[in-house]
Design a protein around this nucleic acid. Structure first.
Lengths: 155, 155
DNA sequence: CAGAGTTTTAGACAAAGTCTATTTGTCCAC
DNA sequence: GTGGACAAATAGACTTTGTCTAAAACTCTG
């Protein structure tokens, strides 16, 4: 089974983004077993334009900015589907909304508590050298590392 | 009003809990600049009975299990206050509710996606040997490391 | 191009959390 | 103790994020 993504990015040491692969969205969706409807392609186009963190709300607004294309239910259905298929990663940092990260390569996040900004940290910048033992009868499903930060008080 | 105690814990290398300090709740709250009202003391008693992760909802249910003592608004106000004062730690792992962790010593979490269970990992079991540079004009406010796990499929 | 299965839709619904105006409680001076 | 100023609690309306439902619209295959 093909596991290639619509776009795959990589960040270099300067934290710059490199486009790694680029292919037809509809074709790619189909390879993942996702019927490429108009709504799904549009949502994918928005998400995969660049590596970014968007909430369902923001995607809904963008996708319908030039006339109604997708309903709220479709946005949620599609994001859930993309997440299950590994196209996007759900980032849970804000107590009242989920962000969908179009960068699925291994990385972590800064979350600015004052501004709400979510920014990437390349995985290489965080070295975990010791891992805890998993509770009995469980398997790993992912690690989230969130560095919560605040604006400096000016002095 | 009963003289109940506020506990502080520490975990050793075997992941065992040690009671660290034990003092009158009202007195302790007052030292933190928190007026010890009946509601706040009751909520503190529930939270600090042992190290645990409770949602606002659960606390509301427990606190009012023997007659109405605190309203929903008070629960949220109090938990927010306790969090700002450093008495509890907000744990954001579940997209639709915040957990309040009565263990504020440095540690991380397993989050079982299948059962919703949240369990502690002693800080010593996770060694971070490389830290990213903070974005300009920000200061650290905490690190959350969440190991998402799943139940093994029986085979 | 017909029929079956999928997807989308509007809008009702649910749950977590916030807000507001009013009442109640706390604390300090006397 | 009592009065009064301020702090905290309350019920319930409200907001926001997300889910559900039943009907309509699509997509695909033969």
């Amino acid at each position: 089974m093909s596991k290639t993504l619509l776009y795959t990015w990589r960040m270099n040491e300067q934290n710059h983004i490199k486009i790694f692969t680029e292919r037809d969205i509809g074709e790619q969706l189909r390879e993942l077993g996702i019927t490429p409807t108009q709504q799904r392609v549009q949502i994918a186009e928005i998400l995969f334009a660049r590596p970014q963190h968007l909430s369902a709300d923001q995607i809904l607004a963008v996708v319908n900015s030039n006339g109604p294309i997708a309903s709220k239910a479709t946005i949620y259905n599609t994001l859930g589907l993309f997440a299950r298929k590994g196209l996007v990663r759900e980032v849970i940092v804000d107590p009242n909304k989920v962000f969908y990260d179009s960068n699925t390569s291994e990385h972590h996040h800064f979350y600015n508590l004052d501004t709400g900004d979510l920014t990437d940290i390349v995985a290489q910048d965080v070295m975990i050298t010791s891992l805890p033992e998993l509770p009995g009868n469980t398997q790993p499903a992912g690690i989230d590392i969130i560095f919560r930060i605040r604006e400096n008080d000016s002095e």
